[in-house]
Amino acid sequence: MTLSSIAHQRLYHQRISHTEFVKPEEVVSWMGAMQSQDYLGSLWSVGLRMKDGNEEAVEQALANKTIVRTWPMRGTLHLVSPADVRWMLKAFTPRIISRAAGIYKQEGLDKKIFTRSARLVTAALEGGHQLTRKEVYDVLERGKIATGNTRGLHILGYLAQTGLICFGARKGKQPTFTLLDEWLPAVKLPLQDEAIASFALRYFASHGPATLQDFAWWTGLSITEAKNAHEAIKSSLVQETVNGNTYWMAGSNPVVKPKTASVYLLPGFDEYLLGYTNRTAAIDTNRFKQIAGTGNGILSSTVVINSQVVGMWKRTIARNAAAIDLKPFDSFNKTQKSAIASAAKKYSAFLGTPVKIV
């Protein structure tokens, strides 16, 4: 197996180049978790892994609580299955909160403020209420808790990571927050070690071939914790060594042949790149720095041809249409342009609006 082959396997196992899924919750459950820092981009991440996926169906799944958006891993937003929310928060977020202690101190946030914030937000949301970020900030400000700069965002993140709140349905174009215990019925939590081991198997099935270091980075676990989970499921995995690195995937996964002239328009923060700490199977390190911009936390949407990232794209939404602005690393030939146009048609169907390539 080569690095190029690894990239092709990932496209297949992530259900980008092949899928049997018809429901958003099937995609999210298979993937384990999908980064959702860019909300609209994350909807497309789910939709492109579905047969005939559309944006409305993915948003409806969020409103119907069959998928949930919250802060369960790496201190950033993810889409996860309802059954996974609480055990993930318990397993992954204490380390995130501990690492943020310096930031909290810098922002003047302490246990007393978090406790008061929790009391104020609980009172405002009880009874099934859903409030936008601004409305939650107004509640905190009226309670004499400042939300300026990034204080409000850190408070919201803390309250989500400690299991008080999660995202509800959108109000217009604005996301809302609601009480987790009212949004999702309480469930019996699995044993933590067993849950993490099961999660590891899902990771290597959906993201494989991947390294142990990839899994540790993706979850935020220590390498020792990742090794323990890996050891528990090792008998269900197969391994390949490429350039001195050991890659693992589920033994039930087929080894697939590359699809010729395959083209995909992936959103920023898609798991195809964000699911790994080492992305060189799909993109050169210098090119990755290029799509990651200037370190502002933004990862550009990418054009993938034959498993390799070959450029970037950006969408602009007008009243009755969308435009895709392509920025290739080099130039696209006639065949590639035709294939990109076909990929744009799938995105157009997802949005339910015409898409024009610029």
Rank of each mutant, 00 (worst) to 15 (best):
Thr2His: 01
Thr2Gln: 03
Leu3His: 13
Ser4Trp: 01
His8Thr: 07
Tyr12Thr: 01
Ser17Ile: 01
Glu25Gly: 02
Met31Ala: 09
Ala33Phe: 05
Met34Val: 08
Ser36Pro: 01
Tyr39Thr: 06
Ser42Thr: 09
Leu43Ser: 06
Gly47Ser: 15
Lys51Ser: 13
Gln60Val: 11
Leu62Trp: 12
Thr66Val: 13
Pro72Thr: 10
Leu77Asn: 09
His78Phe: 14
Phe92Ser: 07
Thr93Met: 10
Arg99Gln: 14
Ala100Trp: 02
Ala100His: 04
Asp110Phe: 12
Thr115Ile: 14
Arg116Cys: 10
Ser117Leu: 11
Ala118Lys: 04
Thr122Gly: 13
Ala124Phe: 15
Gln130Asn: 11
Arg133Cys: 04
Glu135Asp: 10
Val139Gly: 05
Leu140His: 00
Leu140Met: 11
Glu141Ser: 09
Arg142Asn: 15
Arg151Ser: 05
Arg151Tyr: 11
Leu153Asn: 06
Ala160Thr: 14
Gln161Val: 05
Ala169Ile: 03
Lys173Phe: 06
Pro175Trp: 07
Phe177Pro: 01
Phe177Trp: 12
Trp183His: 10
Pro185Ile: 01
Pro185Lys: 02
Phe199Thr: 12
Arg202His: 03
Arg202Trp: 06
Tyr203Pro: 00
Ser206Gly: 07
Pro209Arg: 00
Thr211Pro: 01
Trp217His: 09
His230Ser: 05
Ala232His: 08
Ile233Ala: 08
Ile233Val: 12
Ser236Trp: 05
Leu237Gln: 00
Gly244Ala: 02
Thr246Tyr: 03
Asn253Tyr: 09
Pro254Ile: 04
Pro254Ser: 08
Val255Lys: 10
Lys257Pro: 01
Tyr264Gly: 04
Leu266Ile: 07
Glu271Tyr: 08
Tyr276Thr: 00
Thr277Gln: 14
Lys289Val: 11
Gln290Pro: 05
Ile291Ala: 02
Thr294Trp: 11
Gly297Phe: 04
Val303Ala: 07
Gln308Ala: 07
Trp313Pro: 00
Asn320Gly: 13
Ala321Leu: 07
Ser331Gly: 10
Gln336Thr: 14
Gln336Ala: 15
Ser338Ile: 14
Ala341Lys: 10
Lys345Ser: 12
Lys346Trp: 14
Ser348Cys: 00
Gly352Asn: 02
Ile357Gly: 02
Val358His: 09
